[in-house]
């Protein structure tokens, strides 16, 4: 019997494809840049310095909070063999609730912050449960229903902040400002308390997946759902739990942005930076594996911040980073060894 390190070994098998895919995406991106008359080396140098140079580091970390959060939103269901494509809608629901609740509470301060965030988490979690309900009791594939549910959430939120909830003192489609006492305390520069909260959530997921019975059940359901059911795991209950947590984290992200950065709900403010799709791609890159997902989330966040620097220095649009990420995921999907346990 040989002595082995299973976690290491598993990471080993996964790493090369992920790394090669990232490298290859940069090569493809380089070709795109060349063909559009840009120098890829200049652009990539600007990308790296934009992400990692010391003055930009707090920005990167601040950007990483929602990206890692949305990565977890996708990674947890993915680990259990489910797809939550409704992260954006859940994010908006959470942000909207967090923007409304403080305005209506009779008190301000710490308690108001906690209540607002809890309300955001619960509202977004419940919204995510709709998709789970559809799959479990009506047989509607969750990947379709969760995706379609984005549109009503986004549309209604947009309507609300343009009309009934509009801040009449401004011309922009946004809700009224949240009182000073109800905002998340700032730490350093753009960083606020939300960042450590998100770190705690990520660590909790890492611990849960590796060290608990629930985590074991989550993984086994993801590998072979029929086996899990046969072994006595209550798949429906698990799916409800997973979707509530997943949606809840999206709601948490929304509330942190609203209470910590925007201080109000700005129409399209939560969606424009593409946290949801970025997080989803990071989770796919790591196959939902907790540490890998967090690492991928950080990496993609760094890329996007770097993209801002690149756009400033070289006039290459920062949306290029989105293209690189999508190419990475595509290559992973094409070349990662397939699972065969479901025929």
């Amino acid at each position: 019997m040989s002595f082995t390190f299973p976690h290491l070994r598993r990471a080993h098998r996964r790493l090369p494809t992920a790394l090669w895919s990232i490298l290859a995406s940069f090569v493809v991106g380089g070709l795109v840049l060349l063909s559009t008359g840009n120098n890829p080396l200049t652009a990539y140098r600007a990308l790296v310095s934009g992400a990692l140079s010391l003055p930009n580091l707090p920005d990167t970390l601040n950007w990483a909070m929602p990206v890692v959060g949305m990565t977890l939103v996708a990674a947890i269901p993915l680990r259990a063999g489910m797809l939550n494509l409704g992260g954006d809608g859940q994010l908006v629901v959470g942000g909207l609730v967090a923007a409304i609740v403080p305005l209506h509470l009779p008190f301000t301060g710490f308690a108001a912050i906690i209540i607002s965030m809890a309300a955001a988490i619960i509202a977004a979690g419940l919204y995510a449960l709709l998709a789970a309900w559809g799959e479990i009791s009506r047989g509607i594939p969750m990947l379709i229903s969760s995706l379609l549910l984005n549109y009503p959430a986004v549309g209604v939120a947009s309507y609300l902040v343009r009309f009934p909830l509009r801040d009449t003192t401004s011309n922009l489609p946004q809700s009224a400002m949240i009182p000073l006492d109800d905002r998340l305390p700032a730490l350093v520069g753009p960083l606020n308390v939300g960042a450590p909260v998100m770190i705690a959530v990520a660590l909790a997921y890492v611990w849960f997946e590796r060290r608990t019975v629930g985590g074991l059940e989550l993984r086994l359901s993801g590998i072979n759902a029929r086996f899990a059911r046969y072994g006595g795991i209550h798949l429906a209950r698990q799916a409800y739990g997973v979707m509530f947590v997943s949606g809840g984290i999206a709601g948490l992200v929304g509330s942190i942005i609203v209470l910590g950065s925007h201080f109000r709900f700005i129409d399209d403010g939560l969606l424009a930076p593409s946290f949801g799709p970025t997080g989803f791609m990071a989770a796919l890159l790591a196959g939902g594996q907790p540490l890998g997902s967090v690492a991928a989330g950080l990496f993609f966040a760094a890329m996007q911040i770097g993209g801002v620097g690149m756009q400033r220095d070289t006039e290459v649009p920062r949306v290029l980073t989105m293209v690189l990420q999508a190419i990475t995921i595509l290559l992973i999907a094409l070349f990662r060894r397939q699972r065969t346990d479901r025929e």
Binding site: M281, V319, L320, M322, L330, A333
Partner: peptide, 27 residues
């Protein structure tokens, strides 16, 4: 031929389409 994962490929293609068209629109 590659026996890739159908769902992941499609998700990646959708995101690629969105990113690529935005990128090219600017370029």
């Amino acid at each position: 031929w590659l026996r890739g994962d159908n769902i992941s490929i499609c998700i990646a293609l959708n995101l690629l389409a969105s990113g690529l068209t935005s990128f090219l629109l600017r370029i």
